[in-house]
């Protein structure tokens, strides 16, 4: 079943002469339980797509259907209970004055979830932190631990869709591996649908089955990870991207 359907999406910033188009006529479908990847360089518009989907960027046109709901300008509370996002920089995505406990309990209260105490312990367990981290402040956590808290926050309202905006690019490779494993496990155990944005083909190729390559706001190509591994790219830009990625890991 289709979880996400985006048709002819355009996103822009500014108006009049200052208008800059960030995303141009992008269409894609993501099935339930699928992991879809968006790859491109900085400024290619890949994060903007996610931000328009959750309503952080209001200036978009086209049609978006997420979890059966056709999206307008406003997002309902039910939408936020169903679709959540994990941000790139774990150092910037947690409120510096709130403990882990406060972050998670506030989210649950917003979604009207009962038995907060039990759920928090459960969530911290799910993301591999354990209850000992419950009353810590962000500055008492490492980058990887912060990202786990951010993932726990996203999972708190029991969503079915997670949008991952470069979730590991600010982390060390060894920590990145832990987070990628965690994301894979969560996807398996909870049957989540992911859209994952990254500039790193290795990371996207590890998790995603289908990958869209973006350049200057447009999809240049959508291909399966197997095709990518066989280097069966048809577009010149994808070839270039593949060449530089393969070169850097050889």
């Amino acid at each position: 079943m289709t979880a996400i359907s985006v048709q002819n999406m355009n996103v822009w910033f500014g108006t009049g002469a200052l208008r800059a188009d960030a995303v141009l006529d992008v269409s894609f479908d993501v099935n339930e339980g699928e992991i879809f990847g968006l790859v491109g360089e900085s400024g290619s518009g890949k994060s903007t797509i996610l931000r328009a989907m959750v309503g952080l960027v209001p200036t978009w046109s086209g049609t978006m259907q997420i979890a059966g709901e056709t999206l307008g300008k406003k997002r309902s509370q039910a939408f936020f209970g169903n679709v959540q996002m994990v941000f790139q920089d774990p150092y910037a995505s947690l409120h510096p004055r709130h403990t882990v406990d406060r972050v998670l309990s506030e989210v649950m209260r917003l979604h009207g979830i009962a038995d907060v105490d039990e759920r928090i312990v459960q969530l911290l367990d799910d993301v591999g932190l354990g209850a000992g981290f419950r009353f810590r402040y962000p500055h008492q956590l490492s980058g990887g631990q912060r990202q786990r808290v951010a993932i726990a926050r996203a999972l708190a309202p029991k969503p079915t869709i997670l949008l991952l905006d470069e979730p590991t690019s600010a982390l060390d490779v060894s920590v990145q591996a832990e987070i990628l494993n965690l994301l894979a496990d969560l996807q398996q155990s909870q049957g989540l649908t992911y859209i994952m944005v990254s500039h790193d083909l290795g990371v996207v190729g590890h998790l995603c089955k289908r990958i869209a390559v973006m350049k200057d706001g447009e999809f240049v190509e959508v291909l399966s990870v197997e095709a990518m591994r066989r280097l069966e790219a048809s577009h010149a830009y994808t070839k270039h991207l593949l060449a530089s990625s393969i070169q850097s890991v050889s």
Binding site: V173, A177, L180, G202, G205, H206, M228, R229, I246, V249
Partner: peptide, 17 residues
């Protein structure tokens, strides 16, 4: 460090931690 890097050409189900 070497084994925790995801590699496009040599996929693994789980990355070494």
């Amino acid at each position: 460090l070497l084994n925790s890097v995801p590699n496009l050409e040599h996929p693994r189900d789980r990355l070494d931690v």
